[in-house]
């Protein structure tokens, strides 16, 4: 940043302490997009990124009387934004883990694929189970299994966050497992995934 700009920003901070909405708007217009774009890159969701921007500037407005005009405002905004993004990312990670750790990926049985007749039967039951899934779940599931797309890619295509995609797929797997269980087939999802990919 140029010295001129730095000088100007320190004046803006002084104005801000005097409740200037004009100064606030200038700082907001200058910094909001970089915070927004960074947040999107880390959180993969426009809604969450909007919340980050709101949190950061809400904090600025509420702290306006206590800002130090001799310190660069940019560094302050970046620190607040960084902490906010990290907290949200950790929360996402924990929710993600919770989905990953759902109990259906535990047992692995070997006799499930014993012979090809059985296998064909499984696949037809499986396809039936998939056809009864709700639309978004089916799409997410098929994109991940058939087209080997990642959650982020699927999310981009369907306009969903990766976490939502993962939730859809987890639910699809649970549904399929319960359909299979109704037919008396106890099969691990690991095996199921393998069969389906064949």
């Amino acid at each position: 940043m140029f010295d001129q700009e730095k000088y100007e920003e320190s004046k803006l901070v002084l104005l801000l302490a005097d409740d200037s909405e004009y100064a606030f708007q200038l700082l907001y217009d200058r910094h909001r997009n970089r915070i927004y774009k960074t947040a999107i890159r880390f959180l993969k969701s426009p809604i969450l990124a909007q919340d980050v921007v709101q949190d950061v500037f809400m904090k600025l407005w509420f702290s306006r009387k206590n800002m130090n005009a001799s310190q660069p405002i940019e560094a302050w905004l970046h620190t607040v934004a960084k902490n906010n993004i990290i907290n949200r990312l950790k929360k996402l990670s924990n929710e993600w883990k919770a989905l990953t750790e759902l109990p259906f990926i535990t047992t692995i049985s070997n006799n499930a694929t014993e012979n090809s007749v059985q296998e064909a039967e499984y696949i037809s039951i499986l396809n039936h189970a998939i056809s009864t899934l709700p639309e978004q779940q089916k799409k997410s599931f098929q994109m991940s299994r058939h087209e080997n797309m990642t959650y982020i890619q699927i999310g981009e295509q369907l306009g969903l966050s990766p976490l939502t995609v993962k939730t859809h797929i987890s639910r699809a797997l649970l549904h399929i497992k319960s359909v299979l269980a109704e037919k008396g087939i106890i099969i691990s999802i690991v095996i199921l995934t393998i069969i389906y990919k064949i």
Binding site: K90, S93, N94, W96, K97, T100, Y151, P162
Partner: peptide, 9 residues
């Protein structure tokens, strides 16, 4: 992705 989020958590 699972691994990364595990590490972040």
């Amino acid at each position: 992705h699972d691994e990364l989020f595990e590490m972040i958590a």
